[in-house]
Amino acid sequence: MQIAQRHRRLKGMDISNCTVLQGFLPTLVLFLSCMFGLSLGTELSFVTCGSVIKLLNIKHNVRLHSHDVRYGSGSGQQSVTGVTAVEDSNSYWSIRGTRDTVCHRGTPVKCGQTIRLTHVNTGRNLHSHYFASPLSSNQEVSAFGEEGEGDHLDEWTVQCGGTIWKREEAVHFRHRATDALLSVTGEQYGRPIQGQREVHAMSSPSQHSLWKAMEGIFMKPSESPAGSRDYSHSHTEF
């Protein structure tokens, strides 16, 4: 059942022109990487649209995570947490465009660009709003929508130092609607998600709101117009 669900979410994702970053991948993704002859490596020095990645909070050494567990307070939507485990498949997110702006597969994500981050295993988007987070009473961050479609509160602006989002660079994600930044400050949940960290949004940038791209599948840009796949179409779902 889980493999079938992952196949539906990965259906339509063009992985014939991408780089797989060494690390732990969901079983189906690893199978597809072998079937299509994808190489392990770190050729790309930047993050691209259509990539499926994990995001590490560098202050607290936890990866952005979600699962089909809902908050018991606030919005009651799907919870978003931080986990220390490297290999957890529930920490994969797909980089997509917004409802109004196309994010062409394989193109570098620009500093200042607004994107959506879609949770691979549940198809819900990273989301925020003015509900209070359950542990710290900061701004709640949740996962929202169905099959990658939610609303305008799913939009985040990438803040980095140059012109494009570089792989080795720590960046901020600013929630477009509320102007708050995706953050972790160390509060830990008890059961049923014991030890996982609270992820929330805060108004001011700090070391708690710095994130770095880690393991995943990075879509390569088209290397030449002739004989290359066309990334100019508007389909941005993975």
Rank of each mutant, 00 (worst) to 15 (best):
L30N: 05
C18P: 00
D68R: 10
L56E: 14
H200E: 10
S39L: 09
S16F: 08
C18Y: 00
Q2R: 10
S79E: 12
E43I: 09
S66L: 09
E168W: 02
M202T: 09
G23N: 11
L25W: 07
V184H: 04
V83F: 00
F144T: 06
T107N: 13
V158Q: 03
H235Q: 07
D179A: 13
V184S: 08
L38C: 06
P205Y: 03
D68N: 14
L182C: 03
V69P: 00
R174Q: 15
L153R: 12
R8L: 13
G162T: 11
R197N: 14
D154M: 01
E187H: 15
R105W: 09
S228L: 00
H65I: 02
K166N: 09
L117C: 08
V199F: 04
V158M: 10
M219R: 00
H129N: 05
E168L: 09
S133V: 01
L21F: 10
L126Q: 03
F173W: 06
E187F: 14
G150N: 08
G50N: 02
Q78H: 02
A177T: 13
G162L: 06
S203V: 08
H65V: 03
S142H: 05
S33P: 02
Q5W: 02
W165Q: 07
G74P: 06
H129K: 01
S203N: 08
P205W: 08
V158D: 04
S136H: 03
L40E: 08
K110M: 09
E146P: 00
G50F: 06
V29I: 15
C103D: 04
K54N: 08
H200K: 05
H208D: 15
T42N: 14
V158N: 04
L64H: 04
I15P: 00
P221T: 07
E147D: 14
E140T: 07
F46Q: 05
M202K: 02
G123A: 04
Q139T: 14
K166F: 03
E169S: 11
H208A: 15
I164D: 03
R116P: 00
H175T: 01
S142P: 05
Q194M: 11
R176H: 13
K110T: 07
G123N: 05
Q77F: 13
E146A: 12
R6I: 12
T118P: 01
G123I: 04
D151P: 11
S51D: 05
P192S: 13
H67F: 13
T48L: 01
S94N: 09
S128K: 02
R9C: 01
H67N: 12
Q5T: 11
G106H: 09
T185I: 11
G186I: 02
H235E: 07
L28E: 13
L21E: 03
Q2S: 10
R197S: 11
T42Y: 12
H65T: 06
A201W: 02
A180N: 13
L38Q: 11
G72P: 00
H235F: 10
L117P: 08
H172G: 02
I53M: 15
H67T: 10
N17D: 14
G186H: 01
V83R: 05
E223D: 04
H152T: 11
P225H: 01
P134Q: 09
C160N: 10
C34A: 12
